[in-house]
Design a protein around this nucleic acid. Structure first.
Lengths: 219, 219
DNA sequence: TTCACCATTTCCGTATACAGGATATGGACC
DNA sequence: GGTCCATATCCTGTATACGGAAATGGTGAA
C-alpha cells in the first residue's frame, strides 16, 4: 500500500461513505445520487459532495450524464461479463508474478491465510471466509510486486466484490473456492508461474460462470 | 469508442486542454497546477478548474496532496518500469483477443493502417508515423471487443505516451517498430492468438527497454 | 383516450465569498 | 553567519448564490 489513508478532507469522507453504501446494497444500482440531499445528509454543502461523486465516477462505481446528474452504475450484464474476463487475466498475472517474486515471508503468510480459510470453510462461517478470501487475494496482489497491477486488481475487485460475495451461497461453492485456492497456493509455493497463472485464471473464470448462470436465472 | 465525445461542460474542455499540455510537454512533470492562474488563463472560475484537476488525478496524470495543491505527476522511474511491464501484458492481451475476435473489416483496416505506416516509415515523417502508430494500437484495442480492457489500455497508453513518442528518435527505432507491428498484423490476420500476444508483448517490452536505457543515461 | 405542447420546477454547472491550513518571509537570538 | 521562530501571505477546501438546461406535470386538441 502507498500512504494516502487519512481522509483529511470532507470530500474523501463522503466518498468512502457512499462507496460503503454501494457495496452494502444501501444504494442500489440505478439509484439517483442527488447532490442536495446527500449534502443535507452529511451536513455539508454541495461542493464536497460533487467532488466525492466525481471521484466515484472515475472509479467506475457511478455514472454521470452531463446536466442530468449521477446514478449508481447500473449493472450492465454485457460489461460485467467483460469485467470478469479482464479480472481473470489480471488476477492470473498477479499470481504469475507472485510465483516468481514472493519472498518466503510472503509465501508463509499466504499459506497461513489459506490455513485459516480451511477451518472457516469447514465450519461454514461464510462472512469470515469471505473476509479471509479477500485477504488471500490481496496477498497475491501484493506478491506481484507491481503496484500498477495491484491498483488495477483492487479497482476491479471492488467493482465485482458484491457479486463475488453472493456466490458463496451457491451450493458447494465454498469448498470449490477453497480447493482452487489450494492449487494457487501450491503453484506459488513451487514457484511455478505458468501453473499459478492458470490456476488463478480458472478460479476467477469459474466465478464468472457462476455469475453468468445467476443472471441468466434472474432474467 | 463509446459516445461521450462532446465536451458539453467547461470542466471537460479544461481537462482536455491540460491533458494536451502535459502530453506536449508544455506542462512538465512536477509543475504545480495553480487553480487560480489556470482559471484566469481559461477565463473561468476556479470551480470547473478544480473538477478538471480531480479528473486528471483519477487518470493518474496529476497527483494531489490534501491542502497542498496539485502537480503534474512527477515521473517515478520505479513506477514507470512497472507501468511498462503492465502495458506489455495488457497490450498483449488485446492482441490475443483481437486475433480471435476481429472481423474481416477490422482486420482490413488494421492492415491498411500498417500500409500507411510503411510509407511514413520510409520517408521518415516521424510525427505522421506516430499518429498512425497510435491509430494502429487503438485499432487493436478495439479489436479485443472488450471495453474494460480497452479502457485500461488507453489509460496506460495516455500515461506512457510522452515517453513512447520520444523513442522514435532512437536510431533505427522506427524501422524496428514497423517490423514488430508487421509481426502483430501477420499473427492477427492468421487468427493466431498465441503469436499475436507474444509479438505485441515483445513490441512493448522493447519500448520499455529503450525507455530504461534512456533514463539510465539521463541519471 | 392519447398525444403534443407549454409552463413550472427541480437540479446541475458555474461564479463568487469566506475560513483555515501551509508555505514563505523577515527578524531575533545563538 | 546560521538557525529558529513568529508573522504574513497565499492557496486550498468549503459555503453560498445564480443562471440555465432538462425533467415533470398539466392542459388542450385530435
Amino acid at each position: 500500500m502507498s500512504e494516502q489513508k487519512r481522509p483529511a478532507t470532507r470530500a474523501d469522507e463522503i466518498r468512502q461513505a457512499i462507496e460503503k453504501d454501494i457495496f452494502q446494497g444501501v444504494l442500489r444500482p440505478g439509484t439517483r445520487l442527488d447532490e442536495e440531499s446527500l449534502a443535507a445528509r452529511f451536513g455539508l454543502s454541495r461542493t464536497p459532495v460533487r467532488e466525492a461523486i466525481l471521484q466515484l465516477v472515475y472509479s467506475g462505481l457511478v455514472v454521470k450524464k452531463p446536466r442530468q446528474g449521477a446514478v449508481v452504475a447500473p449493472l450492465d450484464l454485457h460489461r460485467m461479463v467483460q469485467m470478469f474476463e479482464v479480472m481473470s487475466e489480471i488476477e492470473g498475472l498477479c499470481a504469475r508474478y507472485a510465483a516468481r517474486r514472493m519472498s518466503p515471508d510472503e509465501k508463509a503468510r499466504l499459506a497461513e491465510l489459506h490455513g485459516r480459510a480451511a477451518s472457516l470453510c469447514e465450519s461454514r462461517e461464510l462472512d469470515e471466509y469471505y473476509a479471509v478470501n479477500r485477504a488471500f487475494h490481496d496477498a497475491i496482489y501484493d506478491g506481484s510486486h507491481n503496484e500498477v497491477l495491484q491498483d488495477m486488481a483492487r479497482s476491479l475487485f471492488a467493482r465485482l466484490a458484491p457479486y463475488r460475495r453472493y456466490q458463496l451461497n451457491h451450493p458447494h461453492r465454498v469448498e470449490g473456492s477453497f480447493a482452487e485456492h489450494g492449487e494457487v497456493v501450491a503453484a506459488i509455493s513451487a514457484a511455478d508461474p505458468d501453473r499459478a497463472q492458470a490456476a488463478m485464471r480458472k478460479h476467477v473464470t469459474i466465478q464468472a460462470d457462476i455469475f453468468a448462470e445467476f443472471v441468466s436465472i434472474m432474467s
